[in-house]
Design a protein around this nucleic acid. Structure first.
Length: 884
RNA sequence: GGGAUCUUAGCUCAGUUGGUUUAGAGCGCUGCCUUGACAGGGCAGAGGUCAUGGGUUCGAAUCCCUUAGAUCCCA
């Protein structure tokens, strides 16, 4: 059967099914060393994008490598319920159907949400299979399934009982679009051009005015004071005075507070305790009234008195006009200020006074900080440690309640008695009822006396338990004692606070142990102009289409080949194309080898024996390099090392050396060794390109059941012979020089020519060495030489001279030589060598260098000098020969 | 405003504790090469005062400081 000349990636998927059928990805605890990764759960209703591809390719490489090394590899997949994002999607879907969230009950809404989840949920997990992700799908978890839900409730109850979860009234970040509170970490700040409005407030019982500067004039309606600095001479006389707030004509005090920045604006600050965290604190100090002028959707409330029901940004314009008309507005300046936005909805966040649930983070932070600082949990790259430390050292309470329905409902029940509200926190309502009965001594209480908190928990409150909950860690020790702590977490640095830090905290809080040993931070996937990939820019390629067009292996190659840890990946289809081309190269190398016929009777040529020995050594060297790079998570570099080894050493040199003449057979020894080497190479490459390696694995050899690349044995290095590698490198450099010489003279590349080399001790020891037989044969074959002859002269008729490996060579050349050009070329080389020698001589004549540098370094310089002088001698002789 | 990281070939990046011939790779570029695995290919080549100015050292891309620029985090 004819094997096609191009690799067809379209049957990759058959291998995925094959692996699944054999259960290769499933893991159960046993005697082997575990290697565990838990997936950063993607949003359950999400679709695969470039970031996922990168992140999951990295995880798959690591888990496949571990599997090949004979470890019990377990990669746990799953999805995240993503409260805000999913609820927003469901609300939108309902709106399109003409249903308003406010018109239906909580239960009805959740029914719709679960329906939505069933329909779209998990698509992304199917897409991950196309990428080749070797997850243990039997362990697929969801942050809102029963087991995970129980973990969330237990964590909340535990923390409540330990006094680390509490309810508090604070200024919070309100997302008026999602209509929920957000934690500090979910607010992203951006500098935006805006304006600074100067507004004057009349001083009560006076014609005098006090001018304030504000970026948010609409909040004037909620002002309850104006503040100045106690040391500000300009305003000393206002002690005990009141001012009249424009529009609402509220009489409010002038207060003196050191918080005010005398340099900023006019040095006087309007105070709106309900809508600014700093104002709130000042308000607390001065017992100011708190007037909340906004509704939950960001429109103005009855409290505002004006513009009721209108949106805050519209009101900003309206009030500016009205203040101008009434003469209160003095001037407007352009001003760039920082605006907080919701990470999910991108709505401008509104500070607001509200009662929410919090986790006291200070106690949790301590072991988590220590773990990372002492490399108990190791970060790759290390520089993220600083960011991490800074956050943990300035940690603030975590707002965990959310005014949503899609999520884990807070397990707190309230009992109203005698004008007081009592709180009972428990895993179930029955347990809460028991607590209530015991607490009140009233055995007649029933469930209907209790009312459960309406809010749900922050999604990250379930995510932070993920490395524990996927193993049912709170309720069953079997799996967690084997798989935990996991080996590595692979994630983006953008969620270092939202997720990574909190998982570490949870790990120490409940398991008294880190959740993972290493954290590998991948970069952001950007386009080649360094822009973040986004839907709105339309610069994000369709991940699945890429796989269809180039094969998953090609895409994996492309993602990885330029993605250093922590550094951004500038995605370019060119990289994926390179991956596809590499697949094709592998495919054709396989076709070449498979096309050979074996003749058991022919003897192994000496150059083949040497080539095999060389490639074995070279491979061991590569294996060691790879090991080193894997250890540092330098996966891109590892891939490039492999790519270069396979393409250059294996295919361009090795295969060309051993390749029998067209139509001739190959000896059995060489063939067998070549298949062995090919096989090892496939295993080395498998983590990066699982599909094609498995395919070729089955092409190059008959396989028994269970003999599959995915579970083959990862090769180990047995050390390598540096002298041998050096000798081959020298031969390669001579071959290259011969080719270059032919190239520059327009000679045919494959015409057999004779090569002369001037006699020297070193050439005798090298090319014709008994220790490494076959060097000369390789030179002859690769450089298309009829013979290599040692001569006693440096000037053979009808040849072109060149220098390689510090020896003088002369290549047969029967046409007229352009003496001028040749002299020029050699002169240029000579000048360079003289400069080189001069720089070393200068170094060596420096007494302080010779006295202070280590002997080895000085010796090395002496050797360099000698080599350089040798080259100069050769070049000068060549020059003299040409000039005669 | 506080902090972190970075600046090496046209582009994207490597460059171990300072010393492997006056810096490496991939892509791109240039030239040559069609019967023999592969044009999604082969062979070869050109490209860099390592951002700037200073310092430490026998020796600096590498360590320290200055300046300029870029990116990011926090407030």
């Amino acid at each position: 059967m004819q094997i096609p000349t191009r690799y067809d990636a379209s049957n990759e998927q058959k291998w995925y099914e094959y692996w699944m059928d054999k259960g290769y990805f499933h893991s159960e605890p046993d005697d082997r060393e575990p290697y565990t990764i838990v997936i950063p759960p993607p949003n359950v209703t999400g679709v695969l994008h470039m970031g996922h591809m990168l992140n999951n390719t990295v995880q798959d490489i690591l888990i496949r490598k571990a599997r090949l090394e004979g470890k019990n590899a377990c990669w746990v997949p799953g999805t995240d319920h993503a409260s805000i994002a999913t609820e927003a999607k469901v609300v939108k879907m309902l709106r399109e159907k003409g249903i308003k969230k406010s018109d239906i009950s909580r239960d009805e809404f959740l029914e719709h949400a679960w329906e939505w989840k069933e329909e779209y949920g998990g698509i992304i997990l199917k897409q991950l299979r196309k990428l080749g992700a070797s997850c243990d799908w039997d362990r697929t978890a969801f942050t809102m399934d029963e087991v995970r839900g129980k973990h969330v409730l237990k964590a909340f109850v535990d923390l409540y009982n330990r006094g680390k979860v509490y309810k508090g009234l604070r200024i919070i970040n309100w997302d008026p679009e999602a209509k929920t509170v957000l934690s500090n970490e979910e607010v992203l700040y951006e500098d935006e051009p805006g304006h600074l409005y100067y507004v004057r407030y009349q001083i009560e019982n006076s014609d005098e005015y006090l001018t304030i500067a504000t970026t948010r004039p609409e909040t004037i309606l909620g002002d309850t004071a104006v503040a100045v600095h106690p040391k500000d001479e300009r305003y000393k006389h206002l002690q005990g005075k009141n001012v009249i707030v424009p529009m609402v004509n509220r009489v409010v005090p002038v207060i003196f507070d050191r918080y005010v920045d005398m340099e900023f604006g006019t040095g006087s600050l309007k105070i709106t305790p309900a809508h600014d965290p700093n104002d709130y604190e000042i308000g607390q100090r001065h017992n100011l009234e708190v007037i909340d002028i906004f509704n939950e959707d960001g429109t103005l409330s009855e409290e505002a008195q004006f513009y009721v029901g209108k949106d805050r940004f519209e009101v900003r314009k309206l009030i500016t006009e009205d203040l101008k008309k009434s003469g209160h507005l003095i001037k407007i300046e352009d001003y760039v200020h920082s605006v907080g936005k919701s990470e999910r909805t991108h709505a401008v966040v509104e500070p607001r006074l509200s009662e929410q649930w919090y986790v006291d983070m200070e106690a949790l932070a301590e072991p988590a900080l220590k773990a990372v600082m002492e490399d108990e949990v190791e970060f790759f790259p290390k520089n993220q440690k600083n960011t991490y430390r800074h956050w943990l050292e300035n940690i603030r309470p975590w707002t965990i309640s959310r005014q949503l329905w899609w999520g884990h409902r807070i397990p707190a029940w309230y009992l109203d008695i005698e004008g007081e509200t009592k709180t009972y926190v428990a895993m179930t309502e029955n347990e809460a009822l028991e607590l209530a009965k015991k607490d009140t001594g009233n055995e007649n209480l029933t469930l209907s006396d209790l009312r459960q908190d309406e809010d749900v928990l922050d999604t990250w409150f379930s995510s932070w338990l993920w490395p524990i909950s996927v193993f049912n860690g709170f309720f069953d020790k079997k799996d967690i004692s084997y798989y935990y702590p996991t080996n590595v977490l692979v994630t983006g640095w953008d969620i270092i606070f939202l997720w990574v830090a909190r998982m570490i905290m949870a790990g120490y809080e409940w398991e008294n142990e880190k959740p993972f040993k290493h954290v590998y931070f991948t970069g952001m996937v950007r386009d080649k102009l360094r822009r973040k990939m986004s839907k709105s820019l339309g610069n994000s390629p369709d991940a699945l289409k890429l796989i269809d067009d180039y094969g998953a292996d090609g895409v994996r190659f492309g993602m990885l080949s330029s993605s250093p840890a922590g550094g951004d990946l500038l995605f370019d289809v060119k990289l994926v194309e390179q991956g596809r081309n590499f697949s094709n190269k592998l495919w054709n190398a396989m076709r070449l080898v498979k096309g050979w016929t074996i003749d058991a009777d022919i003897e192994t040529p000496v150059e083949n024996t040497l080539a095999v020995e060389w490639l074995e050594n070279r491979m061991d060297q590569v294996i060691e390099e790879l090991e080193n790079l894997y250890g540092k998570y330098k996966l891109s570099e590892a891939l490039m090392v492999l790519y270069n080894f396979i393409w250059n050493d294996f295919f361009s040199w090795y295969l060309e050396i051993i390749k029998p003449a067209f139509g001739s057979p190959v000896d059995r020894e060489t063939y067998t060794k070549t298949i062995d080497l090919f096989e090892k190479m496939l295993t080395l490459l498998h983590p990066f390109m699982p599909f094609i390696t498995e395919e070729i694995w089955h092409y190059i050899k008959e396989r028994e059941a269970g003999d599959d690349c995915v579970v083959s044995k990862y090769p180990k290095s047995s050390g390598f012979d540096n002298e041998l590698l050096e000798a081959i490198n020298k031969v390669k450099s001579i071959v290259t020089k011969v080719r270059e010489t032919r190239n520059s003279k327009g000679m045919k590349p494959k015409e057999l020519l004779k090569l002369f080399v001037e006699k020297s001790d070193s050439i005798e020891k090298f090319l014709f060495s008994e220790d490494i037989p076959g060097l000369k044969h390789i030179l002859k074959k690769m450089a298309f030489l009829s013979d290599v002859e040692v001569v006693d002269t440096h000037d053979v008729e009808n040849t072109i001279p060149f220098m390689a490996a510090n020896e003088k060579f002369m290549l047969e050349y029967n046409l007229e030589i352009d003496v001028e050009a040749e002299i020029k070329k050699i002169q240029k080389e000579l000048d360079y060598q003289k400069g080189f020698v001069a720089s070393i001589e200068k170094k060596l004549s420096n007494e302080r260098f010779v006295n202070n540098a280590p002997a080895a370094v000085v010796d090395k310089e002496r050797k360099k000098l000698a080599d350089g002088n040798e080259r100069i001698k050769i070049l000068e002789k060549s020059l003299a020969a040409l000039k005669k």
